[in-house]
Simulated scan of single mutants.
Amino acid sequence: MEKQWPQMIIAMKGHPGTGKSTLSRAISTCLQFPLIDKDDIRDNTLSLQSQYQIPPSTLNDLSYLVLWQITETQLQLGLSVVIDSPHSRRANLNKLVELARAYGAHVVIVECRPKDEREWRRRLEERARSGGDKGHKPATWEEMGRIMEGYNGCWDYEIEDVKKIVVDTTARDEQEKLVNMVIDFIKSSIVV
């Protein structure tokens, strides 16, 4: 079977409630790349957190270690992947870049940055009301503010030679239009 795309990691980036998961699922479906969602891993550690009193930061770190191992396995198989994770710290992206280099893959960042803060807030709080936050994501806009303060600006870091597209996930564009915009960006950024 002939590959249409070079091997790559599409790394979603953005804060909770910005539409990363929705967009990452659509991109993964369109390109037929496996989706690796950090929240799938983190959600399964919540019982450890309460049962053994393990600090949330430790379980978050563990979730990243598992995410990177699953990513490496997919790369070993010659597959491309979509990674759904905030990538709020440069060290997380560094690890993906290191993995990509080890397997000759490209890294592309798709940053979900909502311009409409009211819509972002509505989505975040609606997810919490509907029970979709699993207990480790911010449930209120105030919690989101505390997380942003805790980042102390480190989430907006330089990415050097990694290709990046920023999309407004609160724009009234249809999901299909956003996916096509990302795919067009990848085609123009990476020799296919």
Results as ranks from 00 to 15, higher is better:
residue 13 K to Q: 10
residue 13 K to L: 08
residue 14 G to H: 02
residue 14 G to F: 04
residue 14 G to A: 02
residue 15 H to K: 10
residue 16 P to D: 06
residue 16 P to I: 10
residue 17 G to D: 00
residue 18 T to G: 08
residue 18 T to H: 07
residue 18 T to W: 04
residue 19 G to E: 03
residue 19 G to T: 06
residue 19 G to P: 09
residue 20 K to T: 11
residue 20 K to C: 09
residue 21 S to G: 08
residue 22 T to S: 10
residue 23 L to C: 05
residue 23 L to T: 01
residue 23 L to S: 07
residue 24 S to D: 01
residue 25 R to Y: 01
residue 26 A to E: 04
residue 28 S to Q: 01
residue 29 T to P: 11
residue 30 C to Y: 15
residue 30 C to R: 15
residue 31 L to R: 02
residue 31 L to W: 01
residue 31 L to M: 08
residue 31 L to Y: 01
residue 31 L to G: 02
residue 31 L to C: 05
residue 33 F to H: 07
residue 33 F to S: 06
residue 33 F to K: 07
residue 35 L to R: 07
residue 35 L to H: 04
residue 36 I to N: 03
residue 36 I to T: 03
residue 38 K to M: 00
residue 38 K to Y: 01
residue 39 D to N: 04
residue 39 D to I: 01
residue 39 D to A: 02
residue 41 I to D: 00
residue 41 I to E: 01
residue 41 I to S: 00
residue 42 R to P: 00
residue 42 R to G: 00
residue 42 R to E: 00
residue 42 R to T: 00
residue 43 D to E: 12
residue 43 D to W: 08
residue 44 N to L: 12
residue 44 N to I: 03
residue 46 L to R: 13
residue 46 L to E: 12
residue 47 S to V: 12
residue 47 S to R: 13
residue 47 S to T: 13
residue 48 L to W: 07
residue 48 L to H: 05
residue 48 L to S: 05
residue 50 S to E: 14
residue 51 Q to F: 07
residue 51 Q to M: 11
residue 51 Q to C: 09
residue 51 Q to N: 14
residue 52 Y to L: 05
residue 53 Q to P: 09
residue 55 P to Q: 09
residue 58 T to G: 08
residue 58 T to N: 11
residue 58 T to H: 11
residue 58 T to I: 15
residue 58 T to S: 14
residue 59 L to T: 01
residue 61 D to K: 07
residue 61 D to Q: 10
residue 62 L to S: 09
residue 62 L to M: 14
residue 64 Y to F: 07
residue 64 Y to D: 01
residue 65 L to M: 13
residue 65 L to A: 15
residue 65 L to R: 13
residue 66 V to H: 05
residue 67 L to M: 06
residue 68 W to P: 05
residue 68 W to A: 05
residue 69 Q to C: 14
residue 69 Q to F: 06
residue 69 Q to A: 11
residue 70 I to G: 06
residue 70 I to F: 09
residue 71 T to P: 06
residue 72 E to S: 08
residue 72 E to Y: 06
residue 73 T to Y: 11
residue 75 L to A: 08
residue 76 Q to K: 14
residue 76 Q to A: 10
residue 76 Q to S: 12
residue 76 Q to F: 10
residue 77 L to C: 13
residue 77 L to W: 08
residue 78 G to S: 04
residue 78 G to N: 04
residue 80 S to N: 08
residue 80 S to M: 08
residue 81 V to L: 04
residue 82 V to N: 00
residue 83 I to R: 09
residue 84 D to A: 06
residue 86 P to Y: 00
residue 87 H to W: 12
residue 87 H to V: 11
residue 88 S to N: 14
residue 89 R to F: 14
residue 90 R to K: 15
residue 90 R to P: 05
residue 90 R to Y: 07
residue 91 A to Q: 13
residue 93 L to Y: 02
residue 93 L to R: 04
residue 94 N to T: 12
residue 94 N to V: 12
residue 94 N to Q: 11
residue 94 N to D: 15
residue 95 K to E: 13
residue 96 L to G: 11
residue 96 L to K: 08
residue 96 L to I: 13
residue 96 L to V: 10
residue 97 V to K: 15
residue 99 L to K: 03
residue 100 A to V: 07
residue 100 A to W: 01
residue 101 R to D: 15
residue 101 R to E: 15
residue 102 A to I: 08
residue 102 A to S: 13
residue 103 Y to N: 07
residue 103 Y to D: 04
residue 103 Y to S: 08
residue 104 G to H: 08
residue 105 A to E: 04
residue 108 V to W: 03
residue 108 V to C: 10
